[in-house]
């Protein structure tokens, strides 16, 4: 299995550290946002951060007119069937969900399998802020200011063996705490997977926070994946296990409806869902539909991983 970084993308570019520490950019952005700050504290500085990212040519796939969605949008409109099938269910029904203590196991084809308390799992890694585009398979999209750690760093730390070719992720299974799991709408627990090179891509992100705060329960607390060039269902929530495998793992929505949801699930405006077009999307908070971008705007960074693949077949 091919293990490499996208050639145009150094890990030093990925960290938004210099957004925080490059005073000139930061001050310029902050000045631009100063007027709006009074109206919407907490939101405008991030919009400015996004603009700063763009000016710096940050490889986050952000488009010139991308602005982070409001905290309300991101926390009140969720697909998280573990707490119910309606978009409002996760916010309404996850309030009492306890995320501490939380254990994460890293196992399978690795030289250093381990079971961690979440704090110990995160400790060796640098916490970063990243603004990511999110495209749901249902043809809506958002922009999220996440906080988290690089998935690649976690995988490397576990030292995959030479047989490892895929990574499987599993959500907590506990119907007492996740009442949606009492219904048989999906085959619990939720599982997802990536090819190893996808998991090692510097854009693959393990999220622990939103808008600089702890990740809300409805967004997949305390630890969720975000793979921004893939449809949202790949970005599994409330992860308790990361397992390295030599075979392609099952993924829940593919099991539920194989004709509609694939394993790769790369955002692709040219391959329609059987029941709707994927050519455009509605950005939550906007009225006019936007054109959907190949790999959700991350084609430059991730396109080479799929060179020569029939994306109509591997949808």
């Amino acid at each position: 299995m091919l293990i490499r970084r996208a050639p145009d993308l150094k890990s030093s570019e990925i960290t938004p550290e210099h957004l925080y520490w490059n005073r000139r950019e930061w001050i310029a952005a902050a000045t631009a946002a100063a007027g709006a700050l009074v109206l919407a504290p907490g939101v405008r500085p991030l919009a400015a951060l996004a603009q700063g990212q763009q000016r710096l040519g940050m490889p986050f796939g952000l488009q010139p007119d991308d602005k982070p969605n409001s905290y309300e949008d991101i926390t009140e409109y969720n697909n998280f069937y573990e707490f119910g099938v309606d978009k409002g269910d996760p916010a309404a029904r996850s309030k009492g969900f306890r995320t501490a203590p939380w254990t994460v196991r890293v196992e399978g084809l690795v030289k250093a399998p381990a079971s961690y308390h979440l704090e110990d799992f995160l400790k060796p890694h640098r916490i970063e802020d990243r603004i990511y585009r999110h495209r749901c398979v249902e043809a809506w999209s958002m922009v999220m200011p996440w906080r988290g750690i690089s998935l690649a760093d976690v995988i490397k730390r576990a030292e995959p063996t030479s047989q490892a070719g895929f990574v499987e992720f599993t959500t907590l299974y506990d119907p007492q705490r996740m009442p949606g799991q009492k219904s048989r709408v999906l085959d619990w627990p939720y599982v997802e997977g990536l090819r190893l090179d996808e998991a090692l891509h510097p854009l693959a992100f393990l999220v622990t926070g939103l808008y600089g705060k702890d990740l809300p329960n409805q967004n997949g607390a305390p630890l969720r994946l975000h793979v921004p060039w893939k449809y949202g269902f790949k970005s599994i929530k409330s992860v308790v296990r990361i397992r390295l495998l030599d075979k392609q793992p099952r993924n829940t929505w593919n099991v539920a409806a194989p004709g509609e949801y694939g394993f790769y699930a790369n955002v692709n405006p040219g391959v329609d869902h059987p029941r709707w077009s994927q050519a455009t999307e509605r950005r939550i908070g906007e009225f006019r539909r936007r054109k959907t971008l190949m790999f959700n705007g991350y084609a430059e960074q991730v396109g080479s991983m799929y060179a020569g693949m029939d994306l109509n077949k591997n949808y």
Binding site: E72, D73, E76, Y77, K87, G88, W140, R282, I284, G285, F287
Partner: peptide
Amino acid sequence: WFGADPVK
């Protein structure tokens, strides 16, 4: 009134 995605 109709949530985050009023059109849908």
